[in-house]
C-alpha cells in the first residue's frame, strides 16, 4: 500500500492524524517492522490498531498483556482434555496414539493464531509494559523473525506476516532489545484544534461552538498538573455526546455540573476542578 492509499484509507475510517503519524505507520508497514506506540493513557494508542486493521481490511487479533501472562495464555496450550479422551478411546480401540502432540491437539492463543493465519492480520499486543520481563524476552523471536518455537512441533514461521502493533503506557521501562526491533511512535494528547476535528469526525452534527468549548475545557484540564487522571479522547467524546443529549450548543455551568463525572473519574480531581478558578473563568467568559 503506498502513502497516498494509506492516507485515504485512514481518512475513510474518520481517523484524524498528522503527517508524522502517517509516515511512521507507512514506514513500519513498508519495512515490515513492529510498531511500538507509547503515550499517556487515553491518547488513542489501541485505536490505532483497530483503525489500521479496518483500513487494511484485515482481522485484528488482540493480546491484552498483564502481570503473569505466560506462553500458555499468549502462544499455545495443549488441549489435554482432548488428549485424555483420545487416550481413553484409543486404549479401548487399541488405536495408534503417536500423534497426541500434533496440531489437532493444539489450542491456538493470539500469537500463534496471528502467525498461523493464512491471510495477513493486525496483531495488537496491548499494554506490553504490564507484562513481565520474561514475557517481553519471549516476544523477541516473534518480533524479529515472525516465528515461534514449540518444543514438540518445532519452529512455526508466519505464513503471512502480521502487522504487529505494541502499545505501552510506560509504567515500566521496556528493554532495549525490544525497542531495537520496533519502529517507534509517541502519541500525545491532541491539541485543541485536533480535538475539535476528532469531535467533528466522530460525532457529526455537534454545534461548532460546543466542540470548541469542550476541546478547550479538556485541554485546560490536561494541562492542570493537579489533575491526577487526565481525560482521554474517548472520555471527551462521551462527554460531548452527553452534552449533546442535553441539547446544549455551548458549554455552560449547568452542563458542566451535570456531566463532569463523564470526564473526571476520581473524587480528588473533582474537588480540584470545582475549586479551580481558572476553570470557572473558562465558563464565566461565555456570553449568557
Amino acid at each position: 500500500m503506498d502513502l497516498i492509499t494509506l492516507r485515504r484509507s485512514l481518512e475513510a475510517e474518520n481517523y484524524i492524524f498528522d503527517e508524522e503519524f502517517l509516515i511512521t505507520v507507512h514506514i513500519a508497514l513498508k519495512l515490515g517492522k513492529p510498531l511500538l506506540i507509547e503515550g499517556a493513557a487515553g491518547v488513542g494508542k489501541t485505536e490505532v490498531a483497530k483503525v489500521l486493521a479496518s483500513a487494511l481490511g484485515v482481522e485484528l487479533i488482540r493480546l491484552q498483556c498483564y502481570e503473569g501472562l505466560d506462553e500458555s495464555k499468549a502462544l499455545y496450550e495443549w488441549n489435554y482434555q482432548k488428549q485424555l479422551l483420545s487416550i481413553q478411546a484409543g486404549l479401548a480401540a487399541k488405536a495408534n496414539l503417536s500423534d497426541l502432540y500434533s496440531k489437532e491437539y493444539l489450542l491456538e492463543r493470539p500469537l500463534l493464531k496471528a502467525i498461523n493465519s493464512e491471510t495477513s492480520n493486525v496483531l495488537l499486543i496491548d499494554e506490553i509494559d504490564k507484562s513481565d520481563e520474561e514475557f517481553e524476552a519471549f516476544l523477541l523471536e516473534v518480533l524479529s523473525d515472525f516465528q515461534v518455537s514449540i518444543p514438540e512441533l518445532g519452529t512455526i514461521k508466519a505464513k503471512s506476516r502480521p502487522v504487529i502493533i505494541l502499545t505501552s503506557n510506560n509504567t515500566r521501562q521496556l528493554s532495549d532489545a525490544l525497542r531495537r526491533r520496533c519502529i517507534y511512535l509517541f502519541l500525545n494528547y491532541p491539541d485543541v484544534e485536533k480535538e475539535i476535528r476528532i469531535i467533528n469526525a466522530k460525532l457529526p452534527g455537534v454545534p461548532e461552538r460546543l466542540a470548541k468549548d469542550a476541546a478547550s475545557a479538556v485541554s485546560y484540564l490536561r494541562q492542570n498538573s493537579r489533575v491526577y487522571k487526565k481525560p482521554s479522547v474517548a472520555e471527551t467524546l462521551d462527554w460531548v455526546s452527553s452534552l449533546l443529549a442535553m441539547d446544549k450548543n455551548r458549554l455552560d455551568e449547568d452542563g458542566i455540573s451535570k456531566t463532569l463525572g463523564l470526564l473526571i473519574k476520581n473524587r480528588e480531581d473533582m474537588l480540584e476542578i470545582r475549586k479551580d478558578e481558572g476553570f470557572s473563568e473558562l465558563l464565566d467568559k461565555k456570553p449568557r
Binding site: E20, I27, Y184
Partner: peptide, 15 residues
C-alpha cells in the same frame, strides 16, 4: 517533514 518523520521513526526509541 516526511524525511524527519521517517528518520525519527527508525532512530528514536523513547520520549
Amino acid at each position: 517533514v516526511q524525511v524527519k518523520a521517517a528518520l525519527q521513526a527508525c532512530l528514536v526509541k523513547d520520549e
